Measured scan of single mutants.
Amino acid sequence: MTEYKLVVVGAGGVGKSALTIQLIQNHFVDEYDPTIEDSYRKQVVIDGETCLLDILDTAGQEEYSAMRDQYMRTGEGFLCVFAINNTKSFEDIHHYREQIKRVKDSEDVPMVLVGNKCDLPSRTVDTKQAQDLARSYGIPFIETSAKTRQGVDDAFYTLVREIRKHKEKMSKDGKKKKKKSKTKCVIM
């Protein structure tokens, strides 16, 4: 069974824990209790493949930012979460993405942009803004509501699919490099 290491990042209060708990335990946590770091595991079937999701729910508070490099190193894919009623959390996505790329030393890291709290009427981040940002990053965008469960499975499952595509691409690139290195030079 394939294991996928997913990391949920975003500013404090955007609903990272609520999304994760909704996926794992099928219930909505409405009281806000700032996370330092929590880890969850769940076995699911995605596109006919049974897999184990190892999900790291991270601290959004700035005082825990020193811990970010460590979990970013171990993560295979990242859910970059903002709240649709919090423009600052949307603007912060850029910083999370840049930090992930720096730590992973790669421009090509599996990510999904997630606009959470889409059940709320007080939207300050337009869907088109988020779609445009995701398009500019070359990553999928999904709106979710941890409260109603809308888009929750889709967000995590899409990230797994992005990781699969990335692994497939990397193995193809690896095979191309191996083929090239088999060419021999004969000096007579």
Rank of each mutant, 00 (worst) to 15 (best):
T2E: 15
E3D: 13
E3M: 14
K5H: 11
K5V: 03
K5Q: 14
K5D: 08
L6W: 05
L6A: 11
V7A: 09
V8L: 09
V9W: 00
V9Q: 03
G10H: 02
G10S: 15
G10W: 02
A11P: 05
G12N: 15
G12Y: 10
G13I: 07
G13K: 05
V14N: 09
V14G: 12
V14Q: 13
G15R: 00
G15N: 03
G15P: 03
K16W: 02
S17M: 00
S17W: 02
A18I: 04
A18M: 08
A18S: 07
L19C: 13
T20W: 00
T20S: 08
I21D: 08
I21N: 15
I21Y: 13
Q22A: 08
Q22T: 09
Q22F: 06
Q22M: 05
L23P: 00
L23D: 03
L23V: 07
I24E: 11
Q25M: 08
Q25E: 15
H27L: 13
H27V: 09
F28G: 01
F28V: 03
V29R: 04
V29D: 11
V29T: 10
V29K: 03
V29W: 05
D30Y: 08
D30I: 06
D30K: 12
E31G: 06
E31D: 12
E31M: 14
E31V: 10
Y32T: 02
D33M: 01
D33L: 00
P34V: 02
P34W: 05
T35F: 01
T35I: 01
E37K: 01
D38M: 00
D38G: 00
D38Y: 01
R41P: 14
K42P: 09
Q43A: 10
V44C: 12
V44P: 12
V45A: 13
V45P: 09
I46L: 13
I46P: 13
I46S: 14
D47I: 02
D47H: 11
D47F: 13
G48P: 08
G48T: 09
G48C: 05
G48K: 08
E49H: 13
E49T: 08
E49G: 08
E49R: 08
T50F: 10
C51K: 12
C51I: 13
L52R: 13
L52M: 12
L53M: 11
D54S: 04
I55W: 02
I55T: 10
I55Q: 01
L56M: 04
L56W: 02
D57T: 00
T58K: 00
T58G: 01
A59Y: 00
A59G: 08
G60Q: 00
G60L: 00
Q61D: 14
Q61L: 05
Q61V: 05
E62F: 02
E62R: 03
E63T: 05
E63A: 06
E63L: 03
E63I: 03
E63P: 02
Y64R: 00
S65W: 04
S65I: 09
S65G: 05
A66I: 03
A66E: 03
A66N: 05
M67Y: 00
R68M: 03
R68N: 01
Q70Y: 15
Q70R: 01
Y71G: 01
Y71H: 00
M72V: 01
M72T: 02
M72P: 00
R73T: 06
R73E: 03
R73I: 06
T74A: 05
T74L: 07
G75A: 11
E76A: 04
E76M: 07
E76R: 03
E76K: 03
G77T: 07
G77R: 02
G77K: 01
F78R: 00
F78P: 01
F78L: 02
L79Y: 04
L79M: 04
C80G: 05
C80K: 02
V81S: 10
V81H: 14
F82R: 01
A83D: 15
A83Y: 04
A83E: 15
I84G: 15
I84M: 15
N85S: 06
N86Y: 02
N86T: 06
N86D: 15
T87E: 12
T87G: 06
K88A: 09
S89G: 12
S89I: 02
S89P: 03
F90S: 11
D92S: 15
D92N: 09
I93Y: 11
I93G: 04
H95A: 15
H95M: 04
H95F: 10
H95C: 08
H95T: 15
Y96I: 15
Y96S: 13
R97I: 15
E98A: 04
E98I: 01
E98S: 05
Q99T: 04
Q99L: 12
Q99P: 02
I100P: 02
K101N: 09
K101W: 05
K101Y: 14
R102L: 07
R102A: 14
R102H: 15
V103G: 02
V103P: 01
K104I: 12
K104M: 04
K104E: 02
K104H: 10
D105R: 07
D105A: 08
D105P: 07
S106K: 15
E107N: 09
D108S: 09
V109K: 02
V109W: 07
P110F: 02
P110A: 04
P110S: 03
P110V: 03
M111D: 02
M111I: 09
M111Y: 03
V112L: 11
V112P: 05
L113D: 02
L113I: 07
L113H: 02
L113K: 02
L113P: 01
V114L: 09
G115T: 10
G115P: 06
G115R: 07
G115Y: 08
G115I: 08
N116D: 13
N116T: 15
K117D: 14
C118R: 08
C118T: 11
D119A: 15
L120A: 09
L120W: 10
S122V: 08
R123H: 11
R123K: 11
T124L: 08
D126F: 09
T127H: 06
K128E: 04
K128T: 05
Q129A: 11
Q129D: 15
A130Q: 08
A130S: 08
A130E: 10
Q131L: 05
Q131F: 11
Q131C: 09
Q131P: 11
D132C: 05
D132W: 05
D132K: 07
L133C: 06
A134Y: 10
A134N: 08
A134E: 15
A134H: 06
R135S: 10
R135Y: 14
S136K: 10
Y137R: 12
Y137W: 13
Y137M: 10
Y137K: 09
Y137C: 07
G138Y: 04
G138T: 13
G138Q: 03
G138W: 03
I139G: 08
P140L: 02
F141G: 06
I142S: 14
T144Y: 05
S145L: 04
S145H: 06
S145Y: 08
S145V: 05
T148G: 12
R149L: 05
Q150P: 15
Q150L: 06
Q150E: 08
G151P: 15
G151N: 09
G151Y: 15
G151I: 08
V152W: 15
D153G: 07
D153A: 08
D153E: 08
D154F: 06
A155D: 03
A155T: 08
A155W: 14
A155Q: 13
A155I: 07
A155R: 02
A155F: 15
F156P: 04
F156W: 06
F156M: 07
Y157C: 10
L159R: 02
V160W: 08
V160M: 13
V160S: 13
R161L: 10
E162K: 08
E162V: 04
E162W: 08
I163T: 06
R164I: 14
R164P: 13
K165E: 09
K165V: 08
H166S: 10
K169S: 12
K169Y: 15
K169E: 07
K169N: 09
K172D: 12
G174Y: 04
K175Y: 06
K175R: 14
K175G: 14
K176G: 10
K177F: 04
K177P: 14
K178A: 09
K179M: 14
K180A: 14
K180S: 14
S181K: 14
S181Y: 09
S181Q: 13
S181D: 14
K182Q: 12
T183M: 12
T183H: 09
T183D: 15
K184V: 14
C185M: 15
V186G: 09
V186I: 14
V186F: 12
V186L: 07
V186Y: 14
I187D: 14
I187E: 08
M188E: 15
M188D: 14
M188T: 11
M188G: 14
